[in-house]
Design a protein around this nucleic acid. Structure first.
Length: 280
DNA sequence: CGGATTTGACCAGCGC
DNA sequence: GCGCTGGTCAAATCCG
């Protein structure tokens, strides 16, 4: 597996205006799919089960936004969850929709959500994001650390599907990575769940995890976007600057937030690193 | 040696 | 009920 890459050091995408963030918030997510570093040209695929896809035209004004993403359609929700998550029984793949395969999770002692489910109850799925990127690399770096826990051959596709879990033990986020059978150059990444932490891996292998109290700002109703190491106020134009970090330097360009405050290195550190963890 | 990956087996949902 | 399929587990293996 490729070493984790600090997202700010690899971003090639920028989001430029309020409209962009409104589009993201339209999806009800505070964790927009991170733009992969290996972006290319966009593809026009929309898998069944997803309600829409964001295209370059949706993000007019962006210079290099080439990733398309969509939230899985929730119309098929079996049991809406009381708080913030809604479930979905549809799949993001072209083939028939299934809600199978979740049973194994019930065996996980740590998975209390699954534990709660008993016979006769459908597995409650967290909302999912899929986005497609033209890339030669299967597993796109997104700033988080993932552990691969499975790989399966997919029907009607010559390419296997890989299953990843967030390495943070408290984080239940999963993602699936597969190549499009229609266009092998397109990587389809599906995220399920939302990170409960900031995880920032640095190019040299360092890792900083910034825990966030569950439920405090993880809900779609929250006004926070989540990205590795930084929180984006919804509608903030600061998102753009936060992305505009050169790959070469791996350092921040001292972006400013909407109020004009400059994000110095210390400011970023202050946001990401508990004071006790900092090295001078 | 510890963590990550591989891979075969297992399980449950769904369609017929 | 049976077979197919997707999703997950877990032991074996790999790797830094």
């Amino acid at each position: 597996m490729v070493d984790n890459v600090y997202f700010f050091g690899t971003a090639t995408t920028s989001i430029n205006d309020d409209r962009d963030t409104s589009i993201l918030s339209e999806f009800g997510w505070n964790l927009p799919p991170p733009p992969p570093p290996h972006s290319g040209t966009s593809a026009g695929l929309l898998h069944s089960g997803f309600d829409r896809i964001i295209t370059d035209s949706d993000l007019a004004g962006n210079d290099t936004h080439t990733t398309l993403f969509a939230r899985e359609n929730e119309n098929t929700t079996a049991e809406p969850q009381p708080m913030t998550m809604s479930s979905s029984s549809s799949d993001d793949l072209p083939e028939k929709s299934t809600a199978s395969g979740g049973s194994s999770a019930d065996r996980q002692p740590s998975d209390t959500a699954s534990k709660a489910k008993k016979k006769g109850q459908k597995r409650i799925r967290q909302p999912r994001f899929a986005f497609m990127t033209k890339s030669e690399v299967d597993h796109l770096e997104d700033g988080y650390r993932w552990r691969k826990y499975g790989q399966k051959a997919v029907k009607n596709s010559p390419f296997p599907r890989s299953y990843y879990r967030c390495t943070n033990s408290k984080c239940t986020v999963k993602k699936r990575v597969e190549r499009s059978s229609e266009d092998p150059t397109i990587v389809i990444t599906t995220y399920e769940g939302q990170h409960c932490h900031h995880t920032v891996g640095f190019p040299r292998g360092g890792l900083i995890s910034h825990e966030v109290p569950f439920g405090s700002q993880l809900t779609p109703s929250s006004s926070q976007f989540y990205y590795p190491g930084v929180q984006f106020p919804q509608g903030s134009v600061g998102i753009q600057e936060s992305f505009n970090v050169s790959r070469e330097s791996g350092h921040s360009h001292a972006p400013s937030d909407p109020s004009g405050r400059i994000f110095t290195d210390e400011g970023l550190l202050g946001d990401m690193v508990p004071p006790g963890m900092r090295k001078s």
